[in-house]
């Protein structure tokens, strides 16, 4: 009973806070009374999250529902507190814009942001990602049968993987020009070796019994590859695909800092920082984060479908 009253009180507190934030004049936290409400709201948020976590772990009827509710509510609370602090303390726009401000900037600049997204994501990231992952995969398949080539290639791979993109991006701009091709080249370099190393490890992870089995069946090389090695390597390949989806976005954005036509997410960030339009910078970051997590999520779903048999996934199912 007690916990119910507390939960209700916390909920009221959070709701009150989220309404007041937009009603009070900017800089309201300079009055001590409202500052007290902030402390109370933070405590209420923490308490509510704990309650929700308990519900989730108790596997009650609503567990599945609260699994979605917890991150959603958590996100809402963080945004609300962010909004409250920026408005209440009158934080300068240059330091930190409020979420509402970022949203309105985003909506007012949709055509610009869409063009940037097209340039950076749909052209540079996708092209570079497909080429880098594809090349890494093909090289791994080619190298897996030769320990000699592996000895030569892997140290070179490690060496190249440790080159900072800051260093190669200007060189790629020199080689491939200002447009998206040079960014795609940076993405190829960043994604190639994670894919190579993971695919190689995956192809080598074949159970020796399975290799013997295929030998007794007098299976051909391509049959061995498609029926035994490739499915076995899939969990490794998906690890690389997921890792690379994040790396590719970072690579393309950073590469645009070193020369680009006047479009692209990296260009937008560096240009708007120069003009102190931090809300636009944040809006671009939001788009990048959204694109990144959506592609990661899509890959994770695909992984669940393809490698349903892997212990890490089939345990979660049952």
């Amino acid at each position: 009973m007690n916990t119910r009253i507390l939960t209700l009180a916390a909920l009221v507190c959070v709701c009150l806070q989220s309404v007041l934030v937009f009603q009070l004049p900017i800089g309201f936290y300079q009055q001590r009374f409202w500052l007290l409400l902030l402390a109370l709201a933070v405590m209420a948020c923490v308490y509510l999250m704990q309650r929700l976590a308990n519900i989730t772990s108790s596997r009650s009827a609503g567990a599945k529902f609260s699994q979605l509710l917890v991150p959603a509510l958590f996100g809402f609370m963080v945004l609300m507190l962010w909004e409250a602090i920026v408005r209440g303390f009158n934080v300068p726009l240059v330091l930190m814009p409020a979420p509402s401000r970022i949203m309105s900037t985003l909506l007012n600049n949709l055509p610009t942001l869409w063009a940037d997204f097209q340039q950076t994501y749909l052209k540079a990231v996708i092209a570079g990602y497909l080429m880098g992952c594809g090349l890494g995969f093909v090289t791994a398949k080619w190298v897996v049968r030769s320990p000699f080539l592996q000895k030569g290639l892997l140290p070179l791979g490690n060496f190249m993987a440790s080159i900072p993109i800051i260093g190669i991006a200007p060189i790629m701009v020199m080689w491939f020009g200002f447009d998206w091709q040079s960014k795609a080249a940076v993405v190829v370099i960043m994604t190639f070796f994670p894919m190579l190393i993971n695919t190689l490890a995956g192809l080598k992870s074949v159970d020796p019994l399975h290799a013997d089995l295929m030998h007794t069946y007098a299976a051909g090389k391509s049959q061995i590859f498609f029926k035994s090695q490739l499915p076995q390597a899939m969990p490794f390949i998906f690890n690389a695909l997921k890792l690379n989806s994040t790396l590719a976005l970072i690579g393309a954005i950073v590469a645009e800092f070193f020369g680009t036509p006047i479009v692209g997410m990296g260009f937008r960030i560096s240009a708007e920082v120069g003009r102190m339009n931090m809300d636009m910078v944040w809006a671009t970051i939001f788009v990048a984060a959204l694109a990144g997590s959506l592609s990661y999520g899509a890959l994770a779903l695909l992984e669940r479908w393809v490698t349903f048999w892997h212990p890490s996934i089939r345990d979660k199912r049952s």
Binding site: H210, D212, T216, T307, W309, H310
Partner: peptide, 16 residues
């Protein structure tokens, strides 16, 4: 000629 069948110590079935 696939004249023999071989059964290993472990079942060696493909999990997929």
């Amino acid at each position: 000629n696939r004249m023999y069948g071989y059964v290993f110590q472990a079942p060696a079935l493909f999990p997929w």
